[in-house]
Structures are given as C-alpha cells and as structure tokens.
Amino acid sequence: MNSESSPEGIPAATIVIFRSAPDGGAPEVLMTVRSRTMTFAGGMAVFPGGRVDPADFELAQTIAGPDLSVDEAAHQIAAIRETLEETGLALGLSGDITADSAAKARVMIEAEGALAPVLAAFGWSLDLDQIVPFARWFPQNEKLSRVYDTRFYLADLGTGEVDVSIDNSENTRLFWTSAQGALDAAERGEIKLIFPTRRNLERLALFANFDEARAQAEAIPVKTIIPQIDDNNDQPMLRIMENAGYPITAELLSTVQRG
C-alpha cells in the first residue's frame, strides 16, 4: 500500500479469514500486525489486504460480466492476491493447490506483482464464490495520512490447522484470534486497532460461526461507510451509519486510533 492518496481514495481490499477454533469455541480470524515503518496504520493489527493494482483491473476485465463489474472483480482479485502474498494462503482459487504449490505461487507473486501469471503457471482459476462481500469503508472526512476506500470480504478455511507465515515486508506478525479475543487484547494494550478494524471486530464477534457471518453479509447490502465527526455533544464522537450491521456505531474521537 504505497501509493499516494487521491480525492477518490486509494482502492483497497481485505479478506477476513475464518477458521474453526481448535478448541471448538468461537471461530478465529487471521490478523496481521503492520510494520511500524509503514506510513498507513503502522504498528496496527489489521486483516490481510492491500491496494488494488492496475494488473488487478486488467485481469478483472477478462472475467467481468452482467453480474460482476470490472471494479468489483478487481477488488476481489486484489484481496486474493494480497492474501497469498501476505499470508501464503491460496483463497478464492481453484485447481491443484497444495501447501507446496501455494508456497511456490507466493514466491512467484512476490516477484511478478500480479496474479495472472500465477494462474497461468500453475493452471489455477479464480473461484470468487469463496469470498463474500462484507463491508466497504471510506474514511474520507478524517485527517488521515492516506485515504483508502477499502472493501472487506469474508472467507472460510474451515479447518483449524493451516500454516501461515508473514511476508517480512509490510507485516511483523500473523496470529489467529477470536474477534472478541482481539478486542480484549486491545483493551489490555497488547495490540492497537484503528477505528474500522475495531468496528468490524465488534460486528464479527456477533457470529458463532462462518455461516452466521455469511448470512448477515448476504442479508445486508454493502453500504459505503463514511465515518462522520459529531460535534453535537460535550465531547466529539466519530460515528458511522446505524443500519449496516454494526453493534457499536460511535466512539469518542479522543480515543479513536487513526491510520
């Protein structure tokens, strides 16, 4: 995520990756801690993802159709590409995918910077049914170092035993946690969460499993969430819309972690 912002916002995409908890408890999601040297959200715990690149739009043009715009396809492709590069997980793809081939594909995507050459080299194809549109955040009214227009997706690994590893560039740590566990860790000061990540974790904590998350995501149309500063009270608040599926829609501006 190294492009300068524009008035329209930098297009970005991220995947909230579910897995069944090894102990049978609340489902876990994969989070990464960004390097403190990163301009945006340095040192923050976020979901894997990154900006949408021109090559993502080029590949999207080959699969778009009446039910899938080029813009939406490019965001989904970016989410798949960034997840493979940042974690080593081959989500949203179909074909002969093994731990070994995924590792080799990760090396290739880091070198090529695009997903299309990887698909051709390994004989894989896109399987966008694996990822579910969940949310869209565009904090254009806040004073941020860069403004990203980010689409969030959901995906399910199902199993509790999957190897992941950091990419050693933008991230310093990968970890599995329940959504509530991440919120509790933030309260203890063990991790830091920017406003959109905190709100999404609160929403994810509502679900007992991936199927519940998918059902809510499919029942509530994705709306563009643009946080607004509310100065009508003694202390300013940062608010989001009330009808997008989020249980907590406001936070004191003084406590908000910015990007």
Results as ranks from 00 to 15, higher is better:
residue 66 P to A: 15
residue 66 P to K: 14
residue 67 D to P: 00
residue 68 L to M: 12
residue 68 L to C: 12
residue 69 S to A: 05
residue 69 S to C: 03
residue 70 V to F: 00
residue 71 D to C: 00
residue 71 D to P: 00
residue 72 E to G: 02
residue 72 E to D: 15
residue 74 A to H: 00
residue 76 Q to M: 15
residue 77 I to S: 02
residue 78 A to F: 03
residue 78 A to T: 10
residue 78 A to D: 00
residue 80 I to H: 04
residue 80 I to P: 09
residue 81 R to W: 04
residue 83 T to R: 04
residue 84 L to T: 08
residue 84 L to I: 15
residue 84 L to C: 13
residue 85 E to N: 11
residue 87 T to N: 08
residue 88 G to M: 10
residue 89 L to E: 08
residue 90 A to K: 10
residue 90 A to C: 15
residue 90 A to M: 06
residue 93 L to M: 12
residue 94 S to Y: 03
residue 95 G to Q: 05
residue 97 I to N: 03
residue 98 T to M: 01
residue 100 D to S: 05
residue 102 A to L: 06
residue 104 K to F: 03
residue 104 K to H: 08
residue 105 A to Y: 12
residue 107 V to A: 14
residue 108 M to S: 09
residue 111 A to Q: 13
residue 112 E to V: 04
residue 112 E to T: 14
residue 113 G to A: 02
residue 115 L to C: 04
residue 115 L to M: 09
residue 123 G to H: 08
residue 124 W to V: 08
residue 124 W to E: 13
residue 124 W to M: 06
residue 125 S to M: 04
residue 125 S to G: 10
residue 126 L to Y: 07
residue 127 D to I: 03
residue 127 D to A: 15
residue 130 Q to G: 03
residue 131 I to P: 01
residue 134 F to W: 12
residue 135 A to E: 10
residue 136 R to A: 13
residue 137 W to N: 11
residue 139 P to F: 01
residue 140 Q to H: 12
residue 140 Q to N: 12
residue 140 Q to M: 13
residue 142 E to K: 11
residue 146 R to Q: 15
residue 147 V to E: 07
residue 150 T to S: 02
residue 150 T to L: 03
residue 151 R to Q: 07
residue 151 R to I: 02
residue 152 F to T: 14
residue 154 L to N: 03
residue 157 L to G: 11
